[in-house]
Structure formats: C-alpha cells, structure tokens
Design a binder for these strands. Structure first.
Lengths: 356, 356
DNA sequence: TTGTACGCGTTATCAA
DNA sequence: TTGATAACGCGTACAA
C-alpha cells in the first residue's frame, strides 16, 4: 500500500486480483491530445473554455471522453480551496421531520454538482461544534443548518466570519444568515380559524419548548390568532420537549381543571401525547376535545382519530435552502433573507364542533 | 476571489470585512516548533509518531494545539489517495426504514474520523450508476449500499473490481460483498410460531416484490416455517411494491375467497394496506383476521389496532455495516461475510386467537 | 532521530 | 491561443 503500482501493470501475476483500473489524469488526456496539461485543463473547464481554440477544445474533449477522464475533485479542491461540498447539520435524522428536508437539500445540491456532508448533532452544542469543525476542515463551501437553537453562538460567530450559511426550519433572533422555514404563524392562524369556525371558543395550546424557535414562533402565533378572534389567549402549557410523553404530561396539566374544547399542539408528537392524556382522563377526541397537530408526519392520517395537522412542505424547504446557499456561493445575492414557504391545514377526524 | 490574501493581513482597510482567519498549515506548526515540516508531519501522525523523539512530539503537538492546527484532509487525500469518506447509497431517505440505518452508519463512521456521502437512488439504475460514479470521482474509500436489487450488475462489477463494499438490509445472490441484514427468516419463523400458538392454522402471506431481496427472503421463510408446522404454505399473494395501496390490492385478492384467519405482511405498509382491505370487506382485526407487519416502523404502535410487527435493529444494522467496511478498509478481514442481526417479534393488538 | 526532496492532480499566472 | 512554471498542503522514500 505504501509503494505505487508498477508501471507495467500487465506484469502482475495471474493470481493477483485485477488491479483497479488507474483513473486517467489530466496529463494523460493532454498527452493523448497532443497539448499541454494547462491547455487541456482550460479546454475542459466551462469558464476557461473560451480561451482555447474551438478545434482544440473539441479534440481535448473527445480524447477525455475516450479515456473516460473525470477530474479529480480532490486535486481541484486543493488548488481552488473550494470543494463543491456543503455541510448539513441536523439534530437527528431519525426524527421524521428531517428526512424530507435532507432529501430536498441533497437533490437540489446534486443538480448543481454539489454533495452534502450531513451530521447529527442531537442538539448538543459540543457535537455541533465538533461536526462544524470537521466539516470546515473538509473545506465545505457552506452550511445548511437545521439545528439552531434560539440563540446559537456558533451560528452567530460563523455568520459574522462570513461563512456562507442558510438556516432551515428554525430561526435565530439576530438575522445574520438566510432562513428558510414554513410559515408557521399562518399555519397556526388557519388552525384557529378552523376551530373557531367549528364553534370552539375555549382553545388551549400545548407549546413546544421555547428554546427552540418553532416553539416560540408557534406560541406567539397562537396568542396573536386568539387575540385576533377576541378569545382568551392564556390557556397555555409549555412541554419540555417535542415528544409524546411531554405532550401527555402537558395535556394532563391542562385537563386538571376545566378542559378546553380544543387543543392546538406544537407538533404531531405532542398531539399524540394529548390523545393519551384524553384517553386517561376519560375524554374522547374529537367528541369532547378536538386536537390539532403540526408537521403532518407520516401515518398521522392512520391514527384514531386521524389527526388534523398543519402540513409543512419539508422537501421544498430543503430544496429552497440549498438553492439559497448555492446562490450565495455563486456570488449572487450576498444579503441574508428570510423565505417563508406556505403551509396548509389538513383537516381530518380529530377536529369537530364542540359538544359543550 | 482569484487573488490570494495579502501577506500583511493588517493592511486591509478598516471597512473590509474581517478576513476568514487563515488556517495554519503544517509549515506554520513546524516553523513555530522549530522543526522541519516532515518532522511535524511524523509527530502529528499516529502511525509515524514512534519515529520521532518523544520530546519533539510533545513540542510539536503543543504548538499545533496552540495554533489550532488541523490537518487539511484534502491535501492528505491527494497524497494518500484515500479520503476517509464513504459513499452511502439509499433508495429513499424518506422511507422510514432508512433514517435509523443511515444514522447508525454516520455515527459509527464519525467515531473513526470518516464522513458519509449519501445519495438517494429511488431504485433507479441510472441514478444509482451516476451517484456511484460521482462518489468514486470524489475518491470515497468504499461504499455502503442499501439499494441492491436482487441482482444488481453494478454491485457485481464493482465488487469484482475490488471496490470495498458492504450491503445493508438487502442481499445479492452471488456473495461477492459483505452483507449486514436482519435475521428475517427467524423473524418470520417466530411470527408463525406466535400465530400457531394462538391457534391459527389458515395463515396467508402478502409478500413484498420478489425483485427485492427482502421480499424473496421473507417469502421463502414463510414457506419453510409453514411447512415446519405442517401447514399449507400456498396462501400467498405478491404485492407490486412496498406500499399501502399494493398491500390493500393484494389483501383484497386474498379475501375474495375464504379469508384466512391470519395474514403475515411483508412489511408494515403492506400490513396497513391489509387493514384497509379488511375494513372494506367488513372484517375486523384482530377479531376476524390477525395481521402482522415487519420493521416496526414509528407510530405503528399507535394504529388501531396497534400493529404486531417484527422489529429490526436498524440503527445497529447501520453501525455494523460501517464497522465491517472500516475493518475492510483498514486491511483486516478482507473476505466477505454475512452478518445477520437478531430481530424480535413485538406483539400488540393486531394478533389474537382465531374466532373460527 | 531528523532533514531533503519530490510528487499527488489540478489550476493560476506569466510569458511567448 | 498555448506553453512553462509554480503552488495548493501533505506524506514519505531516501539520505544523513
């Protein structure tokens, strides 16, 4: 492994496994085309092609194709200090919210010849920082970050340093990076509209953790939507985490007193926790209490009752984030901006007119 | 962007954004430590450290730490023609089966300093081939492939060429690459045991597509388990795809005649399709027909009835696949092998004694 | 135990 | 329009 392959490849013993065919290099192409490597490089490169005589370009390209030449991105990166690679930081790929986003990112990046490096941070600052460092060492051209807590120092610091970066699904308070997210506020507003239309007036909110931007944004949106309808906006319990257990705990607290006729949950898992709490309290959904989730994750349409939820265009979120970053990397649109994608309320069996 | 930063960094105008701090290079470390770059390289490299006087090692490491030096993986790759990078090919990250696997892979790789490059193939040979090529161009050291159709020419060809490769969750017929999978056959056997124990004798199988190895393996296992119990093994319908719709169609076909008392589905989505078909046929689960799924995907415990399913240790599958590949890359265990991880039957409400 | 010298494959710059 | 040359940052035979 330390010595290079012998020049005479065919001299290998017949018992030796066939050596991996050595990839032709730019030199090989140049030699075969009878030009200097620099010329071959220019001929093969989109941007510098204009500098080369068309006939030469043609010849070089033909030879390259014939030899099956592909540029070595490693060597190119060393020279250009760009890698056509993007770091993607996600809390946990296992959380159903993220796979569609990541898929959108990867599809959009691939279309532009870029590759994603993804890492799971578990929302742990140490892991985040270390992944970030590793990716920077690998010369990623930029980052797409879905993990920003409400005030992530890492994000600030990097953004300040001018590291190209796009935030997905979560926001920071200081706007120093572009952000792509679902229009949560409108989603909550439509939810409240729907419930009010059904006749609900006593509506509660099981909020997600406020350290996460979605938790804070949705809570604020709940308050403002309720006020808009002239309804009390103070039936609120904040869950510890986005989990079924936390949702159950929060909902039980809510149901200890006079139960509301409808509960707006911070996300689908919290909504499922509400289902549990209702069942334990001997209440039925939607007969006694309506429940609405957020994110419309897979299989929630299969629950009993099927969960009414706000659908977020996750795949498109990813695509848009990648596009924004690619724009930034290509030098266009250097200023940060916020893109909110429209969400939609999917009405199913968990919401009905109040019985009281 | 084409010109390099001036040597005198501080000469930049005050209005210029602070330049990204230039990463210190091995030279910088060597100079600061008063040694030759080669010595610094040896001191910093695990394998060559023994060649350097301990005191020197110490000094170099301290200086490196002080300067915040990190090796440039690009330059290293160019030299070593390894990239500490692994290509991961997955059909669709959006399919709940795969995120845990990918997460396992990434965690295990990260522990060894490796990074994953993932791509979605949608089981499209063209996309697969192109992703494969792109990754090879990026000098990945090996592949973890979760997409192998039963007889994927790409896999064969690459394996023959000696490309390090591990297959996850699916198998090929010719064993020229290592394979990590759940022990599906035992899972099916335990399922049949469970149903027989409940008193079922008329058990049918809604098989997944036979072009995919899991479909074929589980079907074979079904047959053999039924034979083992001396029961008829010919109540079988093959679904077109692993989807709810295909499951429904297949199950309807099954229910057209005398319905079985239990259905073993090729995976959870097919099982959900069976739920649909039963409901349409006016049959109840588990009262009239028991149903068992496979994979135990998220939220199936929340269905009505909660689905009995075979749990596959997906995360561990990923971890094991990564370990196998890393072993291979480090030169150990060059021979291909098959690792089957134990699965477990999770009994829930969709199985009960037969009423007939 | 350390230094010397070179090359991995590419592209930027300068000269012709 | 093309060629010559150097350099990106590192690892490693070889020499000392």
């Amino acid at each position: 492994m330390t010595s290079r392959r012998p020049t005479a490849n065919f001299s290998a013993s017949p018992h030796t496994l066939p050596a991996v065919a050595p990839r032709p290099t730019l030199r090989d192409v140049a030699t075969a085309a009878g030009v200097h490597p620099a010329t071959a490089s220019r001929a093969l490169n989109e941007a510098t092609r204009v500098l080369v005589r068309p006939a030469t370009v043609e010849r070089v390209r033909e030879v390259a194709a014939a030899l099956g030449y592909q540029v070595n991105p490693i060597a190119r990166s060393l020279k250009t200090s760009r890698s056509e690679t993007v770091g993607v930081l996600v809390p946990d790929l296992t959380n159903p919210l993220f796979p569609p986003i990541v898929r959108g990112i990867e599809d959009a990046l691939a279309e532009a010849g870029y590759t994603a490096l993804t890492a799971n941070t578990d929302n742990d600052p140490a892991r985040t920082a270390s992944s970030f460092a590793v990716m920077q060492a690998r010369q990623v051209d930029g980052f797409i970050i879905a993990t920003a807590l409400l005030d992530d120092p890492l994000v600030h610091e990097a953004a300040q340093r001018g590291v190209p970066m796009v935030l997905v699904n979560r926001q920071t308070e200081h706007l120093d990076a572009s952000v792509v997210a679902g229009d949560d506020a409108t989603g909550i507003a439509r939810t409240i509209d729907h419930l009010v239309e059904l006749g609900h007036r006593d509506i509660a909110h099981v909020a997600g953790p406020l350290t996460v931007s979605t938790g804070a944004v949705r809570l604020r949106a709940f308050r403002s939507a309720m006020q808009h309808h002239g309804l009390p906006d103070d039936r609120i319990v904040v869950a510890d985490s986005y989990s079924e257990a936390a949702g159950r705990t929060a909902a039980l607290e809510l149901l200890a007193g006079q139960p509301p006729t409808a509960v707006v949950a911070g996300n689908d898992l919290l909504a499922i926790g509400c289902y549990d709490a209702l069942e334990e309290s001997g209440l039925r959904c939607p007969d006694d209490v309506s429940v609405v989730g957020f994110n419309d994750m897979p299989l929630v349409s299969r629950l009993r009752p099927p969960l009414t939820s706000v659908r977020v265009p996750q795949y498109e979120l990813g695509v848009e984030a990648a596009r924004l970053l690619l724009d930034r990397l290509s030098g266009r649109t250097p200023t940060a901006r916020v893109v909110l994608l429209p969400v939609s309320l999917v009405v199913r069996g968990s919401t009905a007119p109040p019985s009281r």
